[in-house]
Nucleic acid binder design. Structure first.
Lengths: 217, 217
DNA sequence: TAGACCATCTTTGTATACAAATAGAGGAAT
DNA sequence: ATTCCTCTATTTGTATACAAAGATGGTCTA
């Protein structure tokens, strides 16, 4: 994709994922274009691309809105993630090099250290969420299945999923980090079934956290 | 998507899936536009959409080509299909109504009847392939997970996958039909693990057929 | 006052025009 | 002959203009 179109794509996408744009907000091509100082053409292209990824809904002749997700969507998303990410573990385990295992262990160290600091939640949680994404992403990368990575990406690029850690209780966070550690241990031991099982439990636990918190609202 | 853009999208897509366009053929916006008697704008939109679905590759400033798939891609695709479609079986089994089971049994009957006719391969195989797609699609529909359906769709909308039956030997075809029958039996019995296992074996068997034939070339 | 209908205004869909980037051919230098 | 360069032709990327479809608001009628 070209320069301007891909830039505006990133901008709108980031705004949606961060929750800055939401509530099925209308995305009017002309408005976006003038506010960015460009023409409608690249804006339109960006919106269609976001639509293909499921981040916006477009109806013919009626324009684009930021997509919405309900509890059923989240159930589906986390179920599929649990299946696909555990498969990624299965594929990654026999392929992981010592350096890659060390990389994962290092992320575990960093996350555990972060969890113990006295920083405020506002500083700590985004940092933890970022490292969490790197952890999961690394396993997918080691699995060496580009399509698997793409499928998972379409599932996790949803505001609520991206902000999972924001709803975590201290207990849930601690359990999450224990899961990470156990996954790496299983991979290091070359036990792909173990690794896959823990990953499945890990993602399903996240599902319960997110759904529980959301239904409480 | 609008009238013209979605029409040209369907046209190009069908041409790619049928194998009519292939060999990483270049897709020049202007050429497509004049041959269809329209402007570049909707052509461009259709191409970007096809790119998002993975049917065409686009590089910035260098245009679009029909995508290509090698043996590794096919391995990946069938592996993921085996996981996702067996999950669909798992979800579908407890949900399937008597009418839906009857529908699936009916497709099994029709496919078995078709396999026995004395029609030439050129007539029989496309008909079998169409019914096969309906069979798999129905199970996904019963599973009631729209995202799962979308993920599988992106995997199977690949020329070689769509034309799987064309490379089937009579033995492979027979085994495929037996699998279908067993899947329905398992679903009818409410045994989701059985159904899922057969589906996994079914898809992996297809993988072997397709890969074997392709490597023989 | 409620509801339907019409005019208008906004917004999307498509066409065309222009700018920028890339590919390819031809020629010059070594 | 080979390599590098430049110039041109082709093709993509963006802007603008126009057409068509929806939304909106007000008025008229019952």
């Amino acid at each position: 994709m070209a320069k301007i179109a891909s830039t505006v794509y990133e901008q709108i996408r980031t705004a949606i994922l961060s929750g800055e744009l939401s509530n099925s907000e209308r995305l009017v091509e002309e408005d976006l274009a003038v506010s960015l100082g460009i023409s409608r053409t690249p804006v339109r292209e960006a919106l269609r691309r976001l639509a293909a990824e499921g981040l916006v809904d477009v109806s013919p002749n009626r324009g684009a809105r930021v997509a919405e997700w309900d509890a059923d969507d989240l159930r589906e998303i986390f179920d599929l993630r649990s299946i696909l990410e555990s498969h990624a573990c299965e594929l990654a385990t026999p392929r992981a090099s010592a350096a890659e295992i060390a990389f994962l262990e290092n992320i575990c160290d960093e996350m555990e250290a972060l969890a113990k600091t006295e920083l405020s939640s506002e500083q700590r949680l985004p940092a933890l969420a970022a490292k969490n994404r790197i952890f999961h992403g690394k396993i997918i990368e080691i699995s060496n299945s580009s399509r698997l990575g793409l499928l998972i990406e379409t599932l996790i690029h949803v505001p609520i999923v991206m902000q999972t850690y924001k709803v975590y209780s201290p207990q849930a966070l601690e359990r999450s980090l224990r899961h990470h550690r156990e996954i790496v241990t299983a991979m290091k031991a070359g036990d792909e079934v173990w690794a896959a099982n823990v990953m499945r439990a890990h993602v399903l636990a996240a599902r319960e956290e997110v759904l529980g918190r959301n239904e409480a609202d």
